[in-house]
Design a protein around this nucleic acid. Structure first.
Lengths: 137, 137
DNA sequence: AATCTAAATGCAACAATGTTGCGTTTGTTT
DNA sequence: AAACAAACGCAACATTGTTGCATTTAGATT
């Protein structure tokens, strides 16, 4: 199923700006910040970009995740995220050097034993270190 | 060992503002945001507060952690954090309702199996749900 | 106790990030 | 092709965090 049809299925219109963004996100397993996308597509309006990311997130096409440094990032949801907590079902890796963030869909997170009193609804695992590129250098 | 002496030992001067902040942090196992502290101590200068938190963090008295929503928070380090990654050695719990963040020092985080290519240097586990108070209500 | 000095503070200005309102343009439906 | 709701572009604003600089103060020295 192509992204174009995915957008339409969510009741969103297919516009050049939306295609640009979703194609970029679909091209990698990385989570992009607003400012990275702004730099990448400098002719695009800041506000439009914020709204596109929000619309995609609301539609479940994209998940939002805050990185180690507090930067909000967006990545394409692979394998149809069912509910609104789709961002938390996989681990994210943050490179200390290039600051890129990668979605690691295949890493399994074991259950935690929680103290009483807390009602757990989900969790986020954020790993940091050096990515392949930066580790080689 | 009291906080006053801890501050001095790090080569920092003991000022009224610093005492105010560290006493507040010492009084709970919660991680406070800058804006929460600003509201709590409204006569304190915004910039001074930022600098106090930074100084405490650099001194290892306090650790900084970004919550689920991207809000930067600060909490007192219990049991002498040795290195600069002290924030990551325990789990943090974020309440979806009151948005408070709690340090859970006693929850054990199991190792993860990572795919090749990544050099892991640490990880953060962020659990969200309802805290005791909000769950009861 | 008065003096000294580096550290800490308060204020103004600025930068980055994110939001809202509104008039205009455009994708999609008929 | 017309119509309409959705999306866009722009201006303005809010929040969060940083920097420079003049003033004040903690704590060491005499």
């Amino acid at each position: 199923m192509d992204v174009l049809q995915q957008i339409r299925d969510k009741g969103l219109k297919v516009t050049p700006a939306r295609l640009t963004i979703i194609n970029e996100l679909a091209g990698s397993h990385m989570a992009y910040s607003h400012s990275e996308l702004e730099t990448l597509f400098s002719k695009m309006d800041r506000v439009t970009l914020y709204r596109i990311l929000k619309d995609f997130e609301d539609a479940g096409l994209v998940h939002k995740i805050v990185d180690v440094q507090g930067v909000t990032r967006y990545a394409l949801c692979k394998h149809s995220c069912p509910d609104e907590h789709h961002a938390d079902e996989h681990v994210h890796f943050n490179c200390n050097s290039c600051h890129k963030m990668f979605c690691l869909e295949k890493v399994h997170v074991p259950e935690l034993k929680m103290p009483g009193g807390f009602k757990v609804m989900g969790l986020q695992t954020l790993i940091y270190g050096l990515c392949k590129n930066c580790n080689a250098a």
